[in-house]
Design a protein around this nucleic acid. Sequence first.
RNA 1: GUGCCUGUAGCUCAGCUGGAUAGAGCAACGGACUUCUAAUCCGUUGGCCGGGGGUUCGAAUCCCUUCAGGCACGCCA
Length: 564
Amino acid sequence: MVNMIENVKQEIREVVEKALVRASGAGEIPPVQIQEVEVEIPREKDHGDFSTNVAMQVTKLVRKPPRQTAEIIIKNLSLENTYIERVECAGPGFINFHLNNNWLFDTLKAIQAEGENYGRISMGEGKKVMVEFVSANPTGPLHMGNARGGALGDCIASVLEAAGFDVTREFYINDAGNQIEKFGISLEARYIQLLKGEDAVPFPEDGYHGEDIVEHMRNFIAQNGDRLLNLQPLERRRELVKYALEKNLEKMKNDLESYGITYDVWFSEQSLYDSGELQETLDYLQDKGYTFEKDGALWFKASQFGAEKDEVIIRNNGIPTYFASDIAYHRNKFIKRGFDRVIDLLGADHHGHVARMKGAVAALGIDADKLDIVIFQLVRLYRNGEIARMSKRTGKAISLADLLEEVGRDAARFIFNTKASGSHLDFDLDLAVQQSNDNPVFYVQYAHARICSLLRLLEEDGIQVPEASGADLTLLQKKEEIELLKKLAELPEEIRIAAQTLEPSRLTRYVQDVASLFHSFYNACRVKGEEEGLMKARLVLVDATRTVIRNVLGLIKISAPERM
RNA sequence: GUGCCUGUAGCUCAGCUGGAUAGAGCAACGGACUUCUAAUCCGUUGGCCGGGGGUUCGAAUCCCUUCAGGCACGCCA
């Protein structure tokens, strides 16, 4: 659980805080109370390894020019037993810290010691978090929106795990309500049509017209014949829905599995009806006076809780809306199951749900900040430079299964995580399968394979990766070695920020940077055949790079091939 | 009409809880393999950060306004 960047920042914070106290004690500046000294890594290498803007922040309190304050702070710094080698005042009043490289060598030792756990942090303190994602309507196949939401949600979950949260991945099955009703009517119509001819019964206008419905009924009849014809429609539909839903769920489970996603819980919406939780929730809201009746329907006063308008929760036909069961569902998540935090992923077309859902959570007496709703923008597919809507093979809308078949799991997961969730994403199908340097997936995997190849070759000569403590790491001096090392040191910090912002796309960028710096190193420095001390030090570095690449790829569940 | 998201290099995007000279990849151009994988590397070119106001020591970043694109505004989910 080492986060060397955080350690060094903390060291600098402490040293600066002490200097402030000392300076005010000596009467050089008035006493200043500062919440936390901000320490950052400057963009420009000339500006040191770390810097702080504290002198500028206190400029009003101190009533001196920032540069002068900075000089006073610097004068009072006590740098014994720190990584800090040199300090200077620069620009409008920044204090820049130049470190000796020992912190990087310590990082290397930490990477070797922690191995596959390097990067993990304890930020989450074991708190229970649920990530609910995809939760696609089980009436049809998974589409591109589900594909992005799936990659995103699964990686958010992984990032939170790495950050020390106790994560549950959950899929909410919409197996109740209106669309299931429609599903049943559609299945039934096809069932009768298949048995008694197209004209026997009209197909409902607003039904599901997809070929998959017909397909289900064909299979059902092959297995079960026409025995449902004599049943009451309600009974008949129930059987057909049960059959088709099971098939659809199985297909979804399989598709998601081959996409690398395994859920801890598949949660049924219907179960909220059956357990009485839905009714309990509605009673609660009514008791609290958070509802009112209008036009024969029951409404939730969402506008009292920050939403734009009120929402119907029980229709005038007595049937609860989707929103009603979603409120009960969130009550279940927080209260029945005690999650400290819940994260829902929704496509941009559902963003209208955010304010009212948060409002509902607040109405339940739960801190609405415990619910994060991540909205991701929708996907546009490109092929041959043009927007691709249809699958080449099936001629229908491209499904997750089609995508996996065409570009594979690694490329799909990686590319869906290259952009921030709020950004629109253009997915270039041609690029995703290209085995070239244009393709970021291969670029990173190639770096890993290259490292493995190098280690393999040395091993054939009887040379192993040495213990970091037994190698003279100070021999690592070249620019390419140091740059790579610094990047490796950033992994825990990257995970911290990715967990905080719920943006796994940081990690795909990060691992590309690692790969890039490794390739630069590889071209500038030899390992095999070098003088033994240097070779050993570089071996430790190369092995640590492999660990970092593998850990990140493992986190986003992308393969790290040893040969390419 | 109202709300949300987006607008940064030719293209795809970072940077957005304010910091120093706005970054990366691709594309374009010029280089590097007798030596560990050239699926690689090195260098060069490329920017009124959509426009206009404001806040401040300082704005791509915060506020207002305006333009453009996407999405949503249902007793659908």
